[in-house]
Computed example of a mutant assay.
Amino acid sequence: MRTAFGLRFDVPGGYLNTASIGVPSTGTVEAVTAAVATWGAGGARPTDFDADTDAGRELFGRLVGVPADRVAVGATVSQLVGIIAADLPDGARVLVAEDEFTSVTFPFAAQADRGVQVEEVPLEAIPEKAADHDLVAVSVVQSADGRLVDLEALREAVRDRPTRVLLDTTQAAGWLPMRLDWADHVVGTGYKWLLAPRGSSWLAQHPDAPAPRASHANWYAGGGMDSIYGLPLKQAPGGRGLDLSPVWLAQVGAAAAMRELAALDLEQVRAHCTGLADRVRAELGLAPAGSPIVAVPGDDAARRLADAGIACAARAGKARLAFHLYNTDTDVDLVLRALRG
């Protein structure tokens, strides 16, 4: 059992795989366990989950700097990006980063039969190329190696331009302080750095961006129980009108996890996480990067780390380590011994 930032985690030493799946606090585990017990005893009602769903909406907005009334609830990032991709005009030009996570790129690539064109450029070239496209879709932090897009340069590049911007915060929200209320679309999922169950994701839509067609319109997006039967179509105002019917237990866990994260000083969390990662970089002769994700070169790095009992991932030919708030210098020492051994 580890205690970090006042929270308790039943996480083993050497767990450095948060970029794949985060480990919940004991408080989040208890909240989900209690909800499962109530459900298992026949005590759950659909409306019982509304408070947690609304709390998750508000808390995600707070963590990415977006007003809660813009935020829609979903289950996966690709599902939410797909709403935006399906609503692009025929022939639209989309800019993405090379080797971007495919939940960001595939929904746009799937529109090729309508003439939608997707261009890949190096991450560093995104701001420079942005104004030549109708939409830029990019992760704030790259999944494979933890590189950060230059948000200020991107914002400046599209200022007073018709180019829209979609940002994926999946590898950023939970450790990186952000204010993304300027972006047209902000998506993110809960099961990595937000330490929530899989099945909780969100989309924040800027009020000045074109409102996408709610091709997945459903009773929940209509505003609740008064829209469960019959026509005409009902759509709640703001982000609620793009909701998917929530994954109930995932929303319970997301609300519990994000309440804890939102109460922390994220500047301190960022300093902790990136400090551990940059210590590994320094020992390996790599430059500091200000990211909690470290891509360790070497054909056998992932094997050596796994043999030492370190939980990590193999990505793009490198071993990917991810340091979150529950990691310590002890984990860094384990990594360095494994790689030097």
Rank of each mutant, 00 (worst) to 15 (best):
T3M: 04
T3R: 07
G6K: 08
L7R: 07
L7F: 03
P12T: 14
G14C: 00
L16N: 00
N17A: 15
A19Y: 05
I21M: 09
G22Q: 10
V23P: 04
S25L: 02
G27K: 02
V32H: 08
T33M: 06
T33A: 11
G42V: 11
T47Q: 14
A55G: 09
G56Q: 08
L59C: 03
L59P: 01
R62C: 03
R62H: 12
R62D: 15
G65N: 10
A68F: 07
A72D: 00
A72Y: 06
T76Y: 14
V77P: 05
I84K: 01
P89A: 11
E98I: 07
F101I: 09
S103G: 08
D113N: 10
V116H: 04
V116T: 04
L123D: 04
E124P: 02
I126L: 15
P127G: 01
H133S: 01
H133R: 13
A137H: 00
V138S: 03
V138T: 14
V141E: 02
L148Y: 06
V149S: 10
V149G: 01
L151F: 07
R161D: 15
P162Q: 07
T163E: 12
V165Y: 12
L167W: 11
T170G: 12
W175V: 05
L176Y: 06
H185P: 06
G188I: 04
P197W: 00
P210G: 13
P212M: 05
N218T: 10
M225I: 15
I228C: 15
L231A: 14
P232S: 14
K234V: 15
G238K: 05
L244S: 07
P246E: 08
P246C: 03
V247G: 00
A250G: 08
Q251G: 08
V252H: 06
G253Q: 03
A257W: 01
L266G: 05
E267N: 12
Q268V: 10
V269A: 03
R270H: 07
R279S: 12
L284A: 04
L284W: 03
L286K: 00
I293A: 07
A295Y: 00
D300H: 06
A308E: 14
G309S: 08
A322D: 02
N327Y: 13
D331T: 03
D333V: 12
L334I: 07
V335W: 01
